[in-house]
Design a binder for these strands. Structure first.
Length: 821
RNA sequence: GCGAGGGUGGUGAAAUUGGUAGACACGCUAGACUUAGGAUCUAGUGCCUGACGGCAUGGGGGUUCGAUUCCCCCCUCUCGCACCA
């Protein structure tokens, strides 16, 4: 016999069939729909193990749901814009488009070779104008609605990539893509007003019960809502006011100074003409430089300088010196804060350094005020005028109301979330469909001129100006309003824009009338199950949620949230670290497929760990998976005739037949439960392995008893059906070998019979003082009294009881007896 | 610093209304069949012990007849956030 079943031939055969018969092409149809989506890949060149794992998990679910009778949408495509294409083009002297499409062709072949059941009719590449033209149209619609704007601000600049990054794309102070240090830089750029949806993005997280808590928590924190008050402090000797945001209005009577961000527009003005002017100027410059130099996460020593001006506390009239302070963030709140050293640790440290007085206004309920730090806990107000004696939580509302009534304050909610900057100074991205006319100003491109095509003739260089800025043929245009000369926007969009709506485009990817075919979208959306890496917990998932809400408000969709259930699969690890080229521990899927076949690779990546955990790659483990499939194959092959023949159920089963029947039903039960429960395929597979072990031991010629052929057939059928979603070529072949026609995809999932799954004999553990001392074999319904009787008379047990008196006997039904002495 | 989630054999992992710890698999040991084996099959395999038995789910304490599971303290690893007022 051959060492291995001929996986190469079998896999080829079924892949050809699935493709030529278009088995996985779907349309809006009767029956419950199920939209399964895995995060689409960047076409970097080759599929890696992370893809294999992600897409295998997805394919199992897709096939499983089909067997359960769902109309399953399972599309695949390419997140095809992005910087690596430009870098590769420079390096290999080719064109980004060429490089990208070559990669796509290669990777598509690899995915086909894995046997994934995609509807390839729906394939999308986001770098095609037929895709991005709708993105440009939508951009203009959002612009007209006021949800997109242009501003000059401090942005995150990656010198390596020569482009701006969004806040979400800066990871630990480094570029998410190339890991080089990000530096602040002042630039103009286009922004999506994601903050307009901050409240809803936060609130709707509560609707996402099918998402991991970890991701919900991260998003909640990223959005960072905090409620408090905005208060205007009059500036002494000026008509101007200094506006601050605080979450602790209850401490306002304890303010002893004010802190203002160095970049704040008032900072220089406040010292103008005074003795402090030079000092303040110098401080502002120095802080700016220090912030650029500071490595990420490094907390600068608190430092500040007196501006020479004072604010007046609107409640008390107390003079509060205004300091420019290096720890005050311009980007959050109003860029200025009231400082209450007694009740804020940062203010305390600053005050201690510059010898500014503290004033206690919140008295702790029990303990004394701490000596050498701020007290930030709850308490009762003191030194606070009319509010003395009030609980500090209640005082927050009361003081805010008083400030509101007197006209110098109001309740205020602030978010940590900032608007999404999408301008990229790169070539390989969607052109931003805007232009600048000397007469008419910034204007959107006329709809009839869409799409703004990326020019194909382009010179790319390692550094220097943005490529489109060097193409007059591209940027020289005419104004749609006045017909005069105008200059096109030469920045392109962040590639996260394409991935924010691709899931919706899949519902009718070649729709020519607009961005979204509303009917198709209404049928398929939302995505029932989304699968991808946890590294997108903030980035992509937040942007896609925002886009969904914006598309809904523009009338394209009728859903609030795109992804009902989210599975974040763990990384693929080898030798304790993430697989990566730089670490030299990558395993190439194609090599493995050649050696073992796609089914074995699929099986191992499902078996080695539950999907949400990291998967430790182990070549020997792959051998094990292969061995298992071969074992099953050999059995089916050797019993072909029996399995093809017609059998009748035997009324009275002998012991070993009954055992196998029972195990089969138990296995179907466990498998079905575990797959529904968080897709724990690893335990599903182990259940089938157990069943297989029992099956293979069954037809032993040395035995007196023979297993009923009908039961063998039943067991084999169950194994084939259960494993089909995981190892589809293998099972399709076995299905055919055992005399069946038709695709298993549309064959009903096996049922189990609780009665048949039931054990008639069970093992009862006997414990003495909580330690296992003996075991009893009893029939299922044995009464507590009988069990008690048997337990105390058990020889082994007696030895441990000795002549000590029995205090108590605990009986747990069908499980154990504990004798307490 | 704050927040979240982990820590179980040589390895990947099972085990939840608290009830047989280690299913399944890898590896390892011995044997069988073989010209050969990185194929296949059989048996064994948490640790200590000659055995009876004892000890074991990061460490320590607690609740309980009984704790991987619940509570408290500590150690450690991973991830997220990081002066957000």
């Amino acid at each position: 016999m051959a060492k291995h079943y001929n996986f190469a031939a079998i896999e080829q055969k079924w892949q050809d069939k699935w493709q030529s018969e278009q088995c996985y092409t779907v349309k809006e149809d009767k029956g419950p729909k199920y939209y399964l989506l895995e995060m689409f890949p960047y076409p970097s060149g080759r599929i890696h193990m992370g893809h294999v794992r992600n897409y295998t998990i997805g394919d199992v679910i897709a096939r499983y749901k089909r067997m359960r009778g769902f109309n399953v949408l399972h599309p695949m495509g390419w997140d095809a814009f992005g910087l690596p294409a430009e870098n590769a083009a420079i390096k290999h002297d080719t064109h980004p488009a060429r490089w990208t499409y070559d990669n796509i062709d290669y990777m598509r072949g690899q995915l086909r070779r894995m046997g994934f059941s995609y509807d390839w009719q729906r394939e999308i590449a986001t770098c095609g104008a037929e895709y991005y033209r709708w993105e440009q149209k939508f951009f203009i619609e959002l612009y007209q609605k006021g949800l997109i704007y242009r501003k000059k601000t401090t942005v995150n600049w990656c010198e390596q990539c020569q482009t701006v990054l969004a806040n979400e794309q800066v990871i630990d102070g480094e570029c998410w893509r190339c890991d080089s240090q990000v530096i602040p830089r002042e630039m103009h750029g286009w922004f999506f007003k994601i903050t307009a949806y901050a409240e809803e993005l936060l609130a709707d997280l509560d609707k996402l019960g099918g998402w991991p808590d970890k991701v919900l928590t991260m998003q909640r924190h990223w959005i960072g809502k905090s409620t408090g008050a905005e208060i205007n402090f009059p500036i002494e000797g000026s008509t101007k006011k200094l506006t601050i945001f605080t979450t602790r209005p209850d401490t306002i009577f304890g303010a002893t100074f004010m802190s203002i961000a160095p970049e704040h527009p008032l900072t220089l003005e406040l010292s103008k003409g005074g003795s402090t002017e030079d000092e303040v100027k110098e401080f502002v410059e120095r802080t700016k430089a220090a912030k650029q130099r500071a490595s990420y996460g490094e907390e600068l020593d608190k430092e500040g300088v007196f501006t020479g001006s004072y604010c007046l506390n609107p409640f008390t009239g107390r003079r509060l010196p205004i300091y420019a302070a290096n720890f005050v963030l311009m980007e959050y709140g109003s860029g200025a804060v009231m400082a209450v050293p007694a009740h804020d640790q940062r203010d305390y440290e600053f005050a201690a350094k510059y010898d500014i007085p503290c004033l206690e206004v919140i008295h702790p309920p029990t303990a004394e005020m701490p000596e050498d730090q701020a007290y930030e806990g709850p308490g009762t107000l003191i030194n606070s005028g009319d509010f003395n004696g009030m609980d500090n939580i209640r005082a927050r509302a009361a003081i805010t109301k008083a400030a509101t009534d007197q006209g110098f304050g109001r309740p205020k909610t602030t978010f940590r979330l900032r608007d999404w900057g999408i301008s990229r100074q790169r070539y390989w991205g969607t052109p931003i469909p805007m232009l600048n006319c000397g007469k008419c100003g910034i204007q959107p491109v006329a709809e009839s001129d869409l799409p703004v095509q990326l020019p194909t003739e382009v010179k790319l260089a390692k550094s220097g100006k943005s490529p489109l800025q060097q193409l007059p043929d591209f940027y020289e245009t005419t104004c749609p309003c006045c017909g005069g000369p105008a200059r096109r926007e030469t920045d392109t969009m962040d590639t996260f824009v394409e991935s924010s709506w691709y899931y919706a485009r899949y519902t009718n990817p070649h729709y020519k009338e607009g961005m979204i075919d509303k009917q198709a979208a209404a049928y398929w959306l939302p995505v029932d199950q989304y699968i991808g890496g946890v590294e997108h917990a903030i980035l992509h998932l937040l942007y896609a949620r925002f886009f969904t809400k914006a598309m809904r408000d523009m009338g394209y969709l009728n859903i609030d949230e795109p992804f009902t259930n989210l599975l974040t699969q763990g990384m693929v690890i080898k030798d304790g670290t993430k697989m990566s080229k730089s670490k030299g521990n990558v395993v190439d899927p194609s090599t493995l497929i050649e050696k073992y076949g796609a089914d074995t690779v699929r099986l191992f990546s499902l078996f080695a760990a539950p999907p949400e955990k990291d998967l430790e790659w182990n070549d020997k483990g792959v051998d094990g998976a292969s061995r298992f499939l071969n074992k099953v194959y050999r059995f089916v092959d050797a019993n072909r005739d029996l399995l093809k023949s017609h059998t009748e159920p035997d009324k009275t089963l002998n012991q070993i037949s009954r055992n196998l029947e029972r195990k089969t039903h138990q296995c179907v039960k466990k498998f079905s439960t575990d797959i529904e429960n968080n897709f724990h395929f690893n335990t599903c597979i182990s259940a089938v392995m157990e069943l297989t072990n029992l099956l293979l031991a069954a037809p032993d010629n040395d035995r007196q008893e023979k297993v009923d052929p009908h039961i063998i057939k039943q067991t084999v059928t169950a194994i084939i059906k259960l494993l089909y979603p995981m190892v589809p070529h293998f099972c399709a072949e076995l299905w055919e070998m055992t005399g069946h026609d038709g695709l298993l995809d549309h064959t009903a999932w096996p049922e189990f019979d609780l009665q048949k799954a039931k054990e008639d004999e069970i093992t009862i553990v006997i414990q003495v003082k909580g330690k296992v001392r003996s075991r009893l074999q009893v029939s299922l319904g044995t009464s507590d009294d009988e069990l008690r009787e048997m337990a105390v008379n058990d020889e082994k047990t007696k030895k441990f009881i000795g002549n000590k008196p029995i205090k108590k006997i605990i009986v747990v039904k069908n499980k154990l007896i504990n004798i307490v002495i």
